[in-house]
Computed example of a mutant assay.
Amino acid sequence: MIKPMTALNRRLTTFDAETIAKQTARIDGWATVRAAVMAGLLRAKFTQHPNLAQALGTAFARPSDLTCGEGTNGCR
């Protein structure tokens, strides 16, 4: 059995990660809340690193997104 605190003292392998995951309790209803949890985590990350948010915000945008919002929505 791998203890998470012990594992932090060395480089984890994919096997270690899988073992830890199997030992961790599951959250009831995770499928319905995971998007909100991930959105909160990303919001915190980009709040802490606004330059990253700015770079990613325009890196994948279509030209119409920059002037008309997400998608074209009638903006031509």
Rank of each mutant, 00 (worst) to 15 (best):
N9Y: 05
K45I: 04
A44T: 14
R34P: 00
A21T: 06
E70D: 09
T19V: 11
A53K: 04
V33F: 07
A35K: 15
G74C: 12
P63W: 03
W30P: 00
L8Y: 12
P4C: 07
T72I: 08
A7Q: 02
T14I: 07
S64H: 05
R76N: 06
Q23Y: 04
N51D: 15
A21G: 04
R76W: 03
P63F: 06
A7Y: 00
S64N: 06
F15A: 15
K3W: 10
T47A: 13
T67M: 13
T67P: 02
L52N: 08
A31I: 06
V37D: 13
V33E: 09
I2F: 04
K3P: 00
K45V: 04
D65Q: 10
A44C: 08
F46H: 05
A21M: 08
A35E: 11
G57I: 05
R76Y: 04
L42F: 03
N51H: 11
C68P: 00
Q48L: 15
D65T: 01
A25V: 12
G29I: 07
F46Y: 11
M38V: 12
R11D: 06
F46K: 03
T14P: 01
L56Y: 12
G69W: 03
R34E: 08
E70F: 06
G69L: 01
A44E: 07
L41E: 04
C75N: 13
G69K: 02
G29D: 05
Q23I: 07
R26L: 09
T58I: 10
A21L: 06
K45H: 13
T47D: 07
V37L: 15
G29H: 02
A7D: 00
W30G: 01
H49G: 03
A36N: 13
K3I: 15
D16V: 00
T13G: 07
N9S: 09
D16Y: 01
H49L: 12
R11Y: 02
Q54I: 07
D28R: 13
T14E: 12
A35Q: 14
G57V: 09
K45W: 04
T32K: 13
A59I: 05
T58C: 10
R26N: 08
R10F: 02
T14S: 08
T67D: 13
F60G: 12
A36V: 08
M5I: 13
T58N: 12
K22N: 14
L66I: 14
R26G: 03
M1E: 09
F15S: 13
T47V: 14
L56R: 10
Q54V: 04
L12P: 00
K22R: 15
D65F: 00
R11S: 10
I27R: 11
P63G: 01
I2R: 02
T6K: 09
A7V: 04
G40Q: 05
A55I: 02
R26T: 07
R10A: 09
G40T: 13
V37Q: 13
L66P: 05
A55W: 03
T72Y: 08
Q23S: 12
K22S: 10
N9H: 11
F46P: 00
L56A: 09
T58W: 11
A44I: 03
G74I: 01
I20G: 00
T67F: 12
L42N: 09
M1D: 10
D16W: 00
P63R: 08
I20K: 01
D28P: 01
G40E: 06
F60Q: 14
F15L: 12
A25P: 03
Q54P: 00
R76C: 02
F60Y: 14
S64L: 02
T14N: 11
M38G: 03
